[in-house]
Design a protein around this nucleic acid. Structure first.
Lengths: 213, 213
DNA sequence: ATGTAATATTTTGTATTCATAGTGCAGAAT
DNA sequence: ATTCTGCACTATGAATACAAAATATTACAT
């Protein structure tokens, strides 16, 4: 097994996203490069490289002379991101091999039913949801599309921890996953795609209703 | 008029894309950072920042210890990019205000008919085509989506100069633009969206047939 | 007390330096 | 003859140093 060797900037990027998931950063706050670099135990150079990458993904924004800061959240942007990811995931599903999806159906259905119960950590729920979607799209041959989806989703992470721990939405999310999986089991790709699109639209509205702002 | 003050990395990025359009870089070739930096008259730091941005957009790829290089072109990737941009532009059109599009229709139609003739520079044709699409999407309220389209299209620039100067495809491109514009004039958004999608599929095939590879 | 100008401090943007990984070649061992 | 090893060289990855811009502070005038 080859030992993992990745550029520092990528490791830093991942670590920053983890911290973001944990809610360590408040949206809209400036980033102090020297402070963050010393906190992470790296120099400013690879840190800035990671920040630039994240800015390209929309997680951060940069202003001349003012450095980087976490892009402020807004209902408008969240809606925009949901529209985009909904369309991209739908496309990915459409491009997937029908036979593969059919075989995948039962597993997706099982996972959807085993959705973590309400007592689980918010982060755990998020992770499970992400993995389910990743598996759903695992048959898509368009690699660039999958990369792009990952990148856009990174920009959505700022919204994840804003979700209040509510119960009903969770069950509806699971129910929608079941609907998608069932359509796949039946080999009805258009229905699955439509259900997936609904899932994003509804997910957006569920979230919106809980974003006090 | 305030004088333009942008980070060096962005100016460098733009300049590199310009050079790419001019065909200054062969796909698949490694980038020598010191050489390129001195050629541009900047230091390696902002250059590397620009390279990292371009890598995030898929224009370049980076390998640990081996630096950056222009991502090699392939029929597969080109098809993937067309699929993505087609879906994104369709979404952008769907989200646009119907009334605005209707008002825009005549202008789009006029521009489509005034498509530059065959003797024009390849670059000129590209620019005109880009501007036409930009105008088509100018009514889309989803700003993130427009940014994303721009970013993905940056990754397609590597393919632009591979097009041989052929005549027939150009006329078909113009004809398709007319179809889209006509649908908008009639206020038939679904037809326009479908025509736009066709435009990307056909454009892809036109290009594919000319990519010898 | 408040507003403004001058100055000090902090922070970012860019350049330079240093360390280490990658590459190619020469020569020895098989 | 071929392959492996060691060494020199080159290029990248990361750290540090410097310059410029933005922000904070203080002194002064009103």
């Amino acid at each position: 097994m080859p030992i993992e060797r990745r550029p520092l900037r990528e490791q830093i990027r991942d670590e920053l996203l983890r911290k973001l998931d944990r809610g360590d950063f408040a949206a809209g706050t400036d980033i102090n490069e020297v402070a963050l670099a010393s906190e992470l135990g790296v120099s400013r150079t690879p840190l800035r490289e990671a920040l630039i990458t994240l800015a390209g993904e929309g997680v951060l924004e940069s202003n001349q002379g003012r450095g980087f800061r976490f892009a402020p959240v807004s209902r408008k942007e969240f809606r925009e991101l949901c529209e985009i990811v909904g369309a991209l995931e739908s496309l990915a599903l459409q491009l997937s091999d029908a036979g593969y999806l059919r075989r995948l159906g039962p597993k997706l259905l099982r996972l959807a039913r085993d959705f973590p119960d309400q007592v689980a950590e918010q982060q755990e729920i998020e992770r499970h949801d992400d993995e389910w979607h990743d598996l759903l799209l695992s048959g898509c041959p368009n690699e660039r599309l999958l990369d792009l989806i990952t990148s856009v989703k990174a920009g959505m992470r700022r919204y994840a921890h804003l979700q209040a721990g509510d119960d009903a939405p969770l069950e509806r999310e699971a129910a929608e996953h079941c609907r998608i999986a069932e359509a796949l089991v039946e080999g009805d790709l258009p229905a699955a795609t439509a259900a997936l699109r609904d899932n994003w639209v509804n997910g957006m509205e569920r979230m919106m209703s809980r974003l006090t702002e």
